[in-house]
């Protein structure tokens, strides 16, 4: 798992150096039965390609959408997903956990 997450950051560097817009999403906090541990990464490019995961696939779609905005305006933001949250319900984090994800642009 560690090695996999590490490879993902290496890819983020490669993508940026190749001139792409890149954002890194990182799980900063989890509560309950979250699918991916704190420190897990998802990297996203400006065409919507992504690598890695911040959940078991439940909220990646939402994170990728937000990441596009982060790449566009350069402002980092924190997203929260959980069952009591309507967005998360829509995004389908139905395992009962709650996660906080920090999304930042690679400048």
């Amino acid at each position: 798992m560690l090695a996999a997450d590490d490879d993902i950051l290496a890819r983020a560097e490669d993508w940026r150096k190749a001139g792409k817009g890149v954002a890194i999403a990182t799980v900063t906090e989890t509560w309950g039965s979250a699918p991916r541990p704190v420190g897990s990464h998802l990297v996203i490019d400006d065409e919507g390609h992504f690598l890695g995961s911040v959940s078991g696939g439940c909220v990646e779609g939402e994170v990728v959408t937000e990441a596009m905005d982060v790449i566009a305006d350069g402002k980092a933001r924190t997203l929260e997903f959980g069952v009591q949250d309507e967005t998360a319900w829509r995004a389908g984090l139905s395992c009962g956990g709650r996660i906080r994800v920090y999304v930042e642009k690679v400048l």
Partner: peptide
Amino acid sequence: MRLELLSILNA
């Protein structure tokens, strides 16, 4: 994250 920091992290 600055690309420079990401590069050092990876290195």
